Every structure is written in C-alpha cells, then in structure tokens.
Amino acid sequence: MSQRFALIIDPAGPDEERVDYSGSFTLVDAEAPALSVGELSTQRGDGVFESIGVIDSHAQEVGPHLERLANSAHICDLPAPNLEQWHQAIAVAAAACPAGEWVIKLILSRGVEHGPTPTAWVTAAPASDFSAVRRNGVKVVTLDRGYPLDVAERSPWLLLGAKTLSYAVNMAALREARRRGADDAIFLSNDGYVLEAPTASLILRFGDRFMTPAPTGGILHGTTQLSVYEFLAARGFETGYARIPASDLTNADAAWLVSSVRLAVAITDVDGQNLPADQSLTADLNNYLLSPRD
C-alpha cells in the first residue's frame, strides 16, 4: 500500500443498527483531493478529531477514543457519531497498516457550508519516530493560556473540553516554546494552575503518588493518561486528580507528558530549572504503552 490510507465515511445516525457498515466507507487516494472547497473543517476548523496510535496493525484504546469523539461532538453541537460505524472504519484502517507504529486520525466535520450532513473520514499514516525523545525526555516552558481555571464552566462556547480541529493556538504554543529554547509547553491558567500541554496530558510524581490536573471542562481527558494510571495502579502506586498550582511543577520528583502517538516522555527541565527524570519507569511505561490495548 501507499504510505497513507484514507476512508471517506457516509455518516450513519447514532440510532441506526446494522451488523455491517462496510458499504458506508469509500477508499480514496490519500494523496489526491477529496474534500469540497466549501468544507467547514478547512474553512473554519469547525469539527472534531481523534488520533489513535497503531502498533503492528492493532489500534490502541479504541473505546476511550470513540467516547471522547462522541463527547467532543456533543460539546460542539455536531450530530452524534455512530460509534459502531466508526469502530468498523478503524478496524479497516488498522488492518491496512503494516508492522510498526502508525497513527489513525478520525475527523468529524460540520460538513460543507449550508450542507445537510456532516463530513467524516479516517486516515492512516506512519507515525514519526519518537524513540529518541522517549529515551532523552523534553524541556518545557510554561505559557499562560489566558483564562482562569473555571472558564469552561462559565464560558462553554470556548469549547475547551472538546478536541476540535481549531489547533492554531496549540501549534503557536509549540512554536513559542521552541523560540524559547524548549521542546514543548505546558499551559497554565491565568490564576496560577497547571493545565495540559498543547498535544499531551501531564502527569506529576510526588513520592509514590502520581497526580494529573483534574479533567474539568478546560482540560481534555487524556486516553493515554488513563492507560498510564491503570499501569501504575497495578503496580501499587496511588493515582489521582487535583487542582495543581504552577509552583508544584518544579517541586515534583518526576514528570511526564503522555499522548497517544508520542507515548510517555519525561520532562527534564521546566523554564530552565532541571527536573529529575526516572528513566527506568519511563521505559516501563513505554513498554506497556507499546503493548496491545483496547
């Protein structure tokens, strides 16, 4: 197959029950034009998405990703996705991925402007090589997101709890981090609390306790963070969620950014201050995250 794979989906209603949705998928050339110029995903970023890691043709954490896709659609007033249809589309895409690490993306858009139905598609492509960053870790800077911690509850139209296609701010934050000599960024609320990274969740270690910022409406609940917590709990560690002051970042015994494709990377420096890196645990986490998980 080519280095990319794409399926256009004819969205089924959430209450439609079929055994086989294969007739609703259309294989297209991933290198050729496939979307209308009136598509609102490209005009306005009006849609939601998920990125799913694929290991040796096995799509990871499909259930949690589909639940989050449905939640994002609900927040954005998009039609509810038929999860069985998406599940079958993911299976088709994963089966087309050769051995190694790939990434499947699910995209649900509001569709063509003034059109009657949403647009939906699935793509698969080789994942970037993250072996070096998993081994060496990352330097991060903290950036003010510009909102207080409770903004999502007071201003739901900001869509902060949804994984939307409007990622320009996230990408700008990564560029700013690199301008400051770092690899990544961690967002802070303007009232001084830790949030998340532009494309990852944050986990902090304090002794034998592992904490992540509480997944309120302003923080995307990470599927990989949930898997990491399952691994840590099985090893007898305490895990939890909390409102974490920014000052706790540099007081942590260790910290990680975790995401579906990059997996677990240790944070080695925060705003120019060194942070201990637990290389052994990081390796254990990535070995677990590279194992098949549903």
Rank of each mutant, 00 (worst) to 15 (best):
S201Q: 12
E84Y: 02
T42K: 07
A254Q: 06
L78H: 09
A246K: 10
P11C: 08
A200W: 02
L220C: 04
A177K: 04
A283C: 10
T117M: 10
A242F: 02
E84C: 04
R243T: 14
S155P: 00
L158F: 09
S189F: 06
P118R: 02
W157Q: 15
W256F: 10
Q279T: 14
T216Q: 11
R68P: 05
M1G: 15
V138T: 00
E31N: 14
L195W: 03
R4F: 04
T42Y: 06
T199A: 10
G13S: 13
A255T: 05
A80S: 14
S41M: 12
A91C: 05
A132P: 00
V19W: 12
S51E: 12
L78E: 00
V151Q: 12
A234W: 05
N251G: 05
F5V: 01
D56R: 09
P213C: 07
K105R: 15
S227R: 13
G207R: 10
D15M: 10
F25K: 09
D294K: 12
T142W: 06
A91D: 14
A197V: 00
D10Y: 02
H114V: 10
S155M: 14
T268D: 05
Q3C: 02
I107S: 09
A214T: 14
V28L: 12
T268M: 01
V92D: 00
L35S: 08
P126R: 09
D284R: 12
R135P: 03
D20K: 11
A132E: 15
S57H: 15
P64T: 08
V138Q: 02
H74Y: 11
L143S: 00
L195D: 01
A234L: 11
Y147H: 15
S291H: 12
Q273C: 08
A70R: 12
S41R: 03
A168Y: 01
A252G: 10
L285Q: 05
G111M: 06
S280Q: 14
S189K: 07
Y229L: 09
F49N: 03
I90E: 06
H58I: 13
E67I: 09
V258W: 02
A127M: 09
R110V: 01
G111A: 13
S41W: 00
P14V: 09
F237D: 00
G45N: 11
P126V: 06
S155Y: 12
G47A: 10
G161E: 05
Q225C: 13
R135W: 05
E196T: 06
I9Q: 01
W121Q: 03
D15A: 13
P276D: 09
E101T: 15
Q43F: 02
